[in-house]
Amino acid sequence: MEEKILEILEAISGTDEVRNDRDLNLFEAGLLDSLGVIELLVGIEEQLGIKIEPTEVDRKEIDTTNKILSYIAKR
């Protein structure tokens, strides 16, 4: 599962920074924006079958790769 999420993130941000620096703030680094969040949620739903509504999750809960991984793991 972790690998799939990393692949989705790489495809969205167009870089493997998301894999190498997992505590990097993705919004501040310009790797994730409004569209990126949507693509991430759609990707997770389509590939992992986990449905997350956009206002269910706060940006602060998913602003680094590590936080995204642990958020999904808890679901």
């Binding site: 409004s34 569209l35 969040v37 949507i38 693509e39 949620l41 759609v42 956009p54 206002t55």
Partner: peptide
């Protein structure tokens, strides 16, 4: 507006593949 209009519109568009280009 971001959460309830933009996000919902774009999310539905991506899921239904309404448009070809990513952006």
């Amino acid at each position: 507006f971001r959460d309830y209009i933009y996000t919902r519109f774009v999310m539905a568009s991506i899921k239904k593949k309404r448009f070809k280009g990513r952006f």
